Simulated assay, not measured.
Amino acid sequence: MSQDIPEIYANYNSFRPEASGSKTLCYFTRNMGALLEESKLGKDANILEIGPGKGELLNKLRGLGYSNLEAFDICASFRENLRSQGFKVYDGNNLLDLLEQLPDNYFDALIAVDVLEHIDRLELQEFLKSFSCKLKSGGVIMGQVPNSSGLFGHNTFIADYTHITPFNEIRLTSLFHGCGYKNILVRETRLPKSVGNFFRSIARNFIFKIAYFLNRLVGATPVKNLSHLILFHAEK
């Protein structure tokens, strides 16, 4: 990751002010919250979030009773803000800087929500392989990325010019498998519960089934996850 990227992130809200504070709160209970429950992490689990921004998810986790929360962000102003909120924060300009600071066999979970797409493919591969040593046995990596094979996922990916690496379910699974992880899960994000979203979900599922059929009909790679964002979960 280039050295000027931190300056871009320091001014991220100038580029996309509508995204500030929304990514973790709107979908937390329905998506990341479900992954946490399925992982059966205790409230004393050692959790590291990379790319936490202003700390919306960390504060949500704190409010749910998780007590051992740590963070890493390449933006210095974000790091200082997180420290002012009482979180332990690691410094560095990239993920490889982070690795040098972490103890082995320490973390129960790594969370990366809308982060992996910002990282160069080779750097990400090197990080995931090395980070396995930082996880306890049975530790997990979980998060969310734009789905470039979603019906409108490519729009989500290219809307942010700091996005570097596109993903779909097949590429994510291959990445984690190649880096030595197991029990890899990739699935569509679900809409938050509401009356309106109930009907939107029905319509969305119908449209996705048609799109999957058309993919098979024309001989395209038959990806099953077609939402514009996808969740992932992989175990050491």
Rank of each mutant, 00 (worst) to 15 (best):
R190H: 13
F199G: 04
F213R: 14
R187E: 03
S194T: 13
F198P: 01
K182N: 06
I184W: 01
L214T: 14
I210V: 14
L214K: 15
N197K: 06
L214S: 09
L185R: 08
I207R: 10
L191T: 01
N197D: 02
F213H: 11
K193C: 02
S201Y: 03
I184Q: 01
A203C: 11
A203P: 00
F213Y: 10
I207V: 15
G196L: 14
F213N: 12
F208C: 09
S194E: 08
Y181N: 07
L214W: 13
F213M: 12
G196E: 11
I184M: 01
E188W: 00
G196C: 06
A211K: 12
I207F: 15
F199P: 03
R204I: 04
K209F: 02
I202P: 01
L185E: 04
S201L: 06
N205Q: 14
F199S: 13
R190Y: 07
N183E: 05
N205H: 10
F198K: 14
S194F: 09
F198N: 08
Y181C: 06
R187L: 03
P192M: 11
T189A: 07
I184Y: 00
F213E: 12
F198Q: 10
A211E: 12
L214V: 15
F199V: 12
V186E: 00
L214H: 06
V195H: 03
F206K: 15
A203M: 12
G196F: 14
F213G: 06
I210R: 15
G196S: 08
I207T: 15
